Amino acid sequence: MFSVGPEDEEVGSSALQGDQSLEEAPESQEGEPLMRNDLQKVPSSARLRKNASATFSLPRIKEEPASQKPGSESKKQSRFSECWKSPWCRYGTAASLFIACVCILVLSAHVQRQQECECLSCPNKWTRYNQTCYFVSKRAGVWKEGQQLCSADGGSLLILDDAVQQQIDELFALNEDHWIGLKKDPDSTDWRWLDGSVFHGSVKYGTDPRMSCAYINKDIGALDCSSRRLWICMKQL
């Protein structure tokens, strides 16, 4: 056995450090290790190329979504063809289409009905009875003025028949004279409504040549057209 002295330990440690420094030191172009002073002379571009080669890594490959993978469309088509072979699938599809068509028709009919209701509404301050609108004035005027104001709202002075007479009796309690759309024909003794039809009933005071315009109260009578009376308008929807 032999012993190692302190001097030998120092020699060994210095030798070991020398070997590590040789391993860490870069090599020159001839393969010899470079010293610290020589390492400073190495160009920075050479060191960058060495670092770049050490940190190089392959790019990641992005996986395609399942919907974009080849074969997904063919799988969907195969599922649809398999479903279509079943009679229940065909009946269900036909029933769904039929229900959708019915819903569309019902919705379109409802929209059309609403539009018709908006178009068939009575003017402001008019009273509706079934498909007819009525208006009773609150002020008096001559026969011509009443007809003009009724016409401005798309109507005319009242043209009576049995149905209209019944509606007037139900809607209004007439205690005063009101102009109606009945006037004596200047070329004859006939009384005609504004729609051109002849009135075959009796007109109170109708034989007086000065009385050419008709009114209604409890009965139908004749007055001078320049007299001032209330009036009744009507409009068919």
Rank of each mutant, 00 (worst) to 15 (best):
N124W: 01
C103G: 13
V106D: 04
S67F: 13
P65C: 04
R90Y: 04
I99T: 14
H110D: 08
E118Y: 00
V106L: 11
L157H: 01
W88Y: 13
S86C: 07
S74A: 15
C83I: 11
I99G: 10
Q115D: 06
I168K: 01
F172H: 05
D177Y: 08
C119K: 12
W84I: 07
G92K: 08
Q167T: 12
G141A: 13
S72G: 05
F172D: 02
L157D: 00
I168D: 02
Q77S: 15
S72L: 09
G146Y: 01
K69T: 11
G71W: 04
S108F: 11
V142N: 10
P65W: 04
E145M: 06
W84Y: 13
L107P: 00
L174F: 05
G92E: 04
G146T: 01
R79F: 11
I61T: 10
Q112N: 12
W179F: 03
R128K: 15
F80H: 13
N124P: 02
P87H: 04
C122F: 00
Q131C: 08
H178N: 09
S67H: 13
E170Y: 04
C133I: 03
S78C: 12
Q131N: 13
E63Q: 12
S121K: 06
K144I: 05
A100E: 05
F98R: 09
F135V: 01
S74R: 15
S81G: 14
G141F: 06
Q68F: 08
F172N: 02
A95C: 05
